[in-house]
Design a protein around this nucleic acid. Structure first.
Lengths: 256, 256
DNA sequence: GCAATAGTGTCTTTCAGACACTATATC
DNA sequence: GATATAGTGTCTGAAAGACACTATTGC
C-alpha cells in the first residue's frame, strides 16, 4: 500500500520520498544567423544513440545553478557564461530508470567562444540547429537538425525543455539584455539585429530596430569600425549596462 | 571525504544524492484593491510561529503541479484554480533540517472563492497583504503585512519566493490572460483595472486601459449591468478566450 | 440638485513601418 | 563603374495620455 505523502510542516523528515535531482542545460548560441543548441550523444542505455541536453546530477550540497554550470563545463568546455534557471521537469516516468526530477537551465554564449571548444574533437558533442515549429507567441517542443537539415532524435523530454528555453528567450528579448550575451564585446548593429531575428524566428524592421537600439541607450558607439567586409564597414557598438530609468509619465502643460 | 557528484549519463543510479523535494505555492488574490497571499503559521520548529507559504512534500510518483494543487487544497481549501510553476529554490541550507529543494508555484483565484474557506475558522491560515518594495521592473523579496500594516515574520526563503511570484505575474500581465483568473465570471471594467493596478502596484490610465481592453477582444459585454452601486452602474463584461490572431504587418500601398 | 462613476469624442505625442536618399567599402 | 550595406531624413498610421463632455445612478 502506498504511503500517504508527508506534510513538510509536521513530523519527521526521515523516511520521506527522495527523488534523484538532475540539472540539464540548454546552451544556445547563434551561428550563421540561426539558433543552435549544444547536444550530447548518449553512449549508454536508455535512449542510447539519441541526443540529449548536457546534464549532471545535483551534488548533495551543490547549488542548482552550480550544477548547471558544471554540466556546461564538463560537456561543452565553456565556463563563465550567462546562465538562468528555466523550469523544473518532474513528470513521473520521464526517465525510465527512476524518478529523476530535472531543474532545467538555459545558457547564452557568443558562438566565437564555442568554436575552439567544439572544433570536431568530440563526436559525441555537437551544436545543432534549433527547429521551432510554432511561430509567434505560442510554445511547445522544439527539435534539433543536423547540418543537412535532418532531424536528430532527442532523448527523454528534452525537446520540451528545448522548446521552453526558446520560448523564454523570446519572451525576455524585449525587456532584458540577454541578446548581448550572444555577441562579442563589440559588434555592428547588423549582428545585433541578426541575433534578434534568430531568436524570434522572423525578420525585424531594420529602421525601427536601429532607432530603438540607439534611443534606448543600451548600445554605445565605440568609435571603431568593422573590417574585412566587402561593403561599407559599419560602426561597432558595445552594450551599455542600463541604468534603471524611472518611468516618468507624460504630463500635459496645465491650462491657463 | 565527500563523494564526487555523479554523471547522469554514466554508471548506476544507486547511491547517488537524493534531496527531499517539496512544492510550495504562492496563492495570490486581490482584496480591496490590494494584492494578498495565503500564508500558514508554522506550528513546529524550525521557525515556529513565523508565516510560511503552503507546501507539501512531493509524493514518490506525484507530478509536481499535483503536489502544488494538493498543498492548496490541504492548507487553503481551494481547488481547481489557476496554477503555474514559478521557480525552484534549492540553495543548500535554505532549510536547516535537510537539503530540501522546493519547486515553487503560484496560483491565482478571485477573492470571492476564498471568503468562504477563510472566514476566520483557522487562525493558522490567513490572507496577508503583499508588500513589494521594488517599484517598476526590478525584483527582489516581498513581505507580508497584517491587517494593521505591520510586517509578518516570514519563514525560510519564502519572502524571495513571494517576490518572484509578484515579479512573474507582473511580467505576464500584458501578454497573457492571468488577470481574469483573479475575477469572477462577469465583472465591470473598473474591477479589471483595479486588478491590474493591484498587480502592478501603480495606477494605470483609465481611458487607454478601456480602449486596450475593448479593442483587444479579450472582453465582451454581457449585456447585464452591475447592481448595488451608489453611482451609475457599469456594463458587465466577461473574458473572451482569445483566438490566436496572426500578426499581419502593416503594408503600404505600392507606388504607381 | 449634488456626488460619483460610466462612457464617448477628440487632440496631441510618441513610435513603428515604410521609403527615399546619400555614404562608403570591395570588386 | 556596379554592388552591397551603412546611415539619415521624412511621411504615415496606430496607440497612449490627456482632457472635455454627456449619461446615469443614489442620496
Amino acid at each position: 500500500m502506498p504511503r500517504k505523502p508527508h506534510d513538510a510542516n509536521l513530523g519527521t523528515l526521515d523516511d520521506v520520498p527522495r527523488p534523484i535531482l538532475a540539472a540539464d542545460v540548454v546552451l544556445l548560441t547563434v551561428i550563421d544567423r540561426r539558433l543552435h543548441a549544444l547536444a550530447v550523444r548518449r553512449s549508454h542505455a536508455p535512449a542510447e544513440g539519441t541526443w540529449s541536453l548536457p546534464g549532471v546530477l545535483v551534488g548533495a550540497d551543490e547549488p542548482l545553478d552550480a550544477a548547471a554550470a558544471r554540466a556546461l563545463s564538463d560537456k561543452g568546455g565553456v565556463d563563465g557564461v550567462f546562465l538562468e534557471q528555466l523550469f523544473t521537469f518532474g513528470a513521473p516516468g520521464r526517465d525510465p530508470r527512476a524518478r529523476i526530477v530535472s531543474v532545467a537551465h538555459f545558457a547564452l554564449v557568443p558562438s566565437s567562444l564555442l568554436d575552439a571548444a567544439l572544433s570536431g574533437e568530440r563526436p559525441d558533442v555537437r551544436l545543432a540547429q534549433v527547429d521551432v515549429d510554432w511561430p509567434g507567441e505560442l510554445g511547445g517542443p522544439a527539435g534539433l537538425l543536423d547540418e543537412h537539415g535532418a532531424p536528430l532524435q532527442i532523448a527523454f523530454d528534452h525537446a520540451e525543455i528545448l522548446g521552453r528555453a526558446v520560448q523564454r528567450v523570446r519572451g525576455k528579448l524585449d525587456y532584458s539584455d540577454i541578446a548581448f550575451e550572444l555577441l562579442p564585446e563589440s559588434f555592428p548593429l547588423r549582428d545585433l539585429q541578426q541575433v534578434h531575428e534568430a531568436i524570434l524566428g522572423r525578420s525585424v524592421n531594420r529602421d525601427s530596430f536601429r532607432r530603438r537600439m540607439l534611443q534606448s541607450g543600451l548600445v554605445v558607439a565605440t568609435g571603431a569600425r568593422e573590417s574585412g567586409t566587402t561593403f561599407r564597414p559599419a560602426e561597432l557598438y558595445r552594450h551599455q549596462v542600463d541604468l534603471p530609468r524611472p518611468h516618468t509619465p507624460r504630463t500635459r502643460k496645465a491650462r491657463p
